[in-house]
Amino acid sequence: MKIRCIVNGKQTDLETAPDRRVVDLLREDLGLCGTKEACGSGECGACTILVDGESRLSCLMIAAQLEGKEIVTIEGFSKEHLHPIQEAFIVHGAVQCGFCTPGMVLAAADLLKRNPAPDRHEIRRAISGNLCRCTGYQKIVDAIESLARVEEESDE
């Protein structure tokens, strides 16, 4: 079937099976391999993408659902420069093997949009659908928290 949607800011016409998993569509058809798969059943968050600005699991979405939607994957998350979240992940050492990182970054984006100044508990809650096996989460929380502080300061 034909699907028209916006992928990373670009109007995109897709020709695909309607029940194709979105994670496969992104990775195999569009070459957007930054979206990872690690469980296929919604238990790990590695395949997180933003759909109309909200975090969703691309392993539990099918192609037809994308019609008319705006999708952002990790590849389209930064524009001219690195997004501050990505920068914070680098600076705070939030990246080890990196397989959870794209999903974590987008989960953080969803959080900061809803709550620009989250505390550590709120941050931990917001990334609780994204498993990380390397970091123990602490530096990921550090990275996101660093941005919350920036928000607070700029408000003053």
């Binding site: 990775r27 195999e28 070459g31 957007l32 391999c33 930054g34 979206t35 990872k36 798969e37 994957t73 990790i74 590849e75 998350f77 930064s78 690195l82 990505q86 992940f89 680098i90 600076v91 050492g93 990246v95 990196g98 397989f99 990182t101 794209p102 970054v105």
Partner: peptide, 21 residues
């Protein structure tokens, strides 16, 4: 020293074995 691999990983550009098609 920030890790050399972090940039490719936060941008989704790093290609793991899983990403080869």
């Amino acid at each position: 020293l920030f890790r050399a691999d972090a940039y490719g990983k936060v941008t989704g550009r790093e290609r793991y074995a899983a990403d080869e098609y």
